[in-house]
């Protein structure tokens, strides 16, 4: 019966669930970046440079995709300890990304560019809302990483089922790619 499932070569329903879910997240950010373009073409738009720390954050999240992939590889090979190690590193890199983003917000504020409040320009507010929402999605990924990591410790879960880590890795690569898109958009296109 197990072989029958494999020979049918169908995507696991939960993977399909995730893929379609990613589509809906794409639409949310497509809505926001479209609104950004519309707003930018109108009057009263403040031009400013992205904080330098966003570049470092980009490198960090790219790196985390690599460690994530290593974790999946180790999980498939059944190597529990390296697997958990790479999961932890990925999560730490995720937290580092969020911290760097936060520093970016602080740097803007220090440059007298208000993100919200009465003095704010919607250019900065857009930057803040878009990156902050992305940040929340990264946070969700970090929580999921820790969830999978600690679940793998319990004896009940045998090593054969790599579905949870595959789901998390798909999501993690997605938020990485999403950030690359947002970064390119904010830096060069928008």
């Amino acid at each position: 019966m197990a072989t029958e499932v494999k020979t049918k070569n169908k995507i696991h329903p939960q993977k399909m669930y995730l893929y379609v879910g990613l589509g809906s997240i794409v639409m949310m950010f497509a809505g926001l970046t479209s609104a950004y373009i519309v707003k930018k073409s109108q009057s009263n738009w403040l031009d400013f440079e992205l904080p330098k720390v966003f570049f470092i954050a980009t490198v960090v999240i790219l790196l985390s995709s690599f460690t994530m992939q290593m974790a999946v590889k180790k999980a498939k090979e059944g190597l529990q300890n390296p697997y958990r190690g790479f999961l932890t590193v990925t999560a730490i890199l995720g937290v580092a990304f969020m911290t760097l983003q936060y520093q970016g917000f602080m740097a803007l504020q220090a440059n007298n560019i208000a993100l919200t409040g009465a003095r704010s320009n919607s250019a900065a507010s857009f930057l803040f809302v878009i990156t902050f929402l992305h940040l929340l999605h990264v946070l969700g990924g970090v929580i999921a990483l820790f969830g999978v990591r600690f679940k793998s410790l319990s004896a009940k879960n045998n090593t054969e089922n790599t579905l949870p880590v595959e789901l998390v890795s798909t999501y993690w690569h997605f938020v990485d790619i999403l950030w690359i898109y947002l970064f390119v958009f904010l830096q060069w296109i928008g």
């Binding site: 639409m27 926001l32 809302v129």
Partner: peptide, 21 residues
């Protein structure tokens, strides 16, 4: 629906955080 959510998030910021979307 995600696009409506985007619109509502911007609305929340205008209502509560003084932004000018």
């Amino acid at each position: 629906f995600p696009v409506l959510l985007s619109g509502l998030i911007l609305l929340i910021f205008d209502r509560n955080f003084g932004t000018s979307f």
